[in-house]
């Protein structure tokens, strides 16, 4: 496979995953904005921080208004991470590597682009937001379903999946990074300052409310939330889950190529840190530090994959 193709696949699926995450964060933030107007500004600030768009946003707008945030994150062409910028970039990549995709997957990507372009042609009004967000998620689900239903399980699939899970791990870690203080044991001791809504918001932003409640019978505790998002191998957006997939896919490529590249060792080391200790040990040695180290290592791994598999010249 061409290095360029691996590069295109990896980033195409990072972009698509990022869109899904942005849609979830907007959904969770919008819920806060609707139900507790006083907390809206704070919530939007953390959403923007999570997606790394706060400085760019502040440059453009003076106030943290809901309509501004929605527009900036969904449509703004000057925001390279806006949903529209991302789907455009993903579709450009898909055009470049069209020969690597099944006809069905290309069509699904193209249709996603056509649908979002139509949907985001004009500013999205608040009352349309839930529909728009669910359409983004539906389109992404279609795309992922087509990937699974039509693509061979080979290097092409592996590089696509690596993009998805590196991006997803980054996103979950960033949510934790912004909200870690809500999860500290000391907070729950105080009891009154943090209520369920904040925790629910965290769960909502990784689409994990129902799974969590089924698991813990409605008992919402910060320790359990942190464990769920970081170490639970059953939870498809947890750090550990992402890394089990990343090591899986790298191991397939290594077998296929008959050579283990340095990125494989790196991924295994990160995965080990998510499986060889309990959440209490992580709290003890410092939650925030752990998350920040993770974000850094995740980025380093991405760059190592690019080098090992000759994405660029």
């Amino acid at each position: 496979m061409l290095g360029k193709t691996a590069d295109g696949l990896f980033w195409m699926f990072r972009y698509l995953e990022r869109n899904e995450n942005t849609a979830r964060l907007l959904d969770a933030g919008f819920r806060i904005a609707l139900t507790r107007a006083a907390a809206a500004e704070n919530e939007w600030t953390s959403v923007l921080t999570t997606v790394g768009a706060k400085p760019a946003f502040m440059e453009k707008y003076e106030q943290m208004k809901t309509t501004h945030v929605i527009d900036f994150l969904l449509r703004d062409p000057s925001n390279p991470s806006s949903v529209m910028s991302m789907i455009q970039a993903a579709r450009d990549n898909a055009r470049r590597l069209r020969t690597a995709l099944t006809r069905e997957l290309w069509s699904a990507t193209n249709e996603c682009w056509l649908t979002l372009r139509e949907l985001l042609a004009r500013p999205v009004r608040e009352r349309e937001l839930p529909f728009v967000l669910s359409t983004i998620q539906q389109q992404n689900a279609l795309l992922n379903g087509t990937l699974h239903g039509t693509m061979m399980r080979n290097e092409i699939f592996n590089f696509a999946r690596l993009g998805t899970f590196l991006e997803r791990a980054d996103n979950t870690a960033r949510i934790l990074d912004v909200k870690y203080y809500l999860l500290l044991p000391s907070v729950s001791l105080v009891g009154s300052s943090v209520d369920n809504v904040q925790w629910e918001t965290i769960l909502r932003s990784v689409s994990a409310q129902r799974s969590y409640h089924r698991l813990h019978k409605g008992d919402v505790r910060p320790r359990e939330i942190a464990n769920f998002l970081m170490l639970d191998l059953r939870m498809p957006r947890s750090l550990a889950f992402c890394y089990s997939k990343i090591t899986d896919n790298l191991s397939h490529i290594s077998k296929d190529y008959g050579i283990r590249q340095p990125c494989f060792e790196q991924a295994e080391a990160v995965f080990a840190r998510l499986t060889d200790r309990s959440i209490d040990e992580i709290f003890e040695s410092g939650l925030h530090e752990f998350i920040q180290d993770f974000i850094r290592d995740n980025n380093v791994l991405g760059r190592q994959i690019e080098r090992d598999y000759r994405f660029y010249g």
């Binding site: 496979m1 061409l2 290095g3 360029k4 691996a6 069209r98 020969t99 290097e155 590089f159 490529i253 190529y257 050579i259 598999y309 000759r310 010249g313």
Partner: peptide, 21 residues
């Protein structure tokens, strides 16, 4: 393979494409 000029290079007297391997 669908290649562009920047995927190609002359290596050991052959035209070769940059692959993941």
């Amino acid at each position: 393979e669908l290649v562009e000029g920047h995927d190609l290079r002359v290596v050991d007297g052959r035209v070769a494409m940059r692959t993941t391997q």
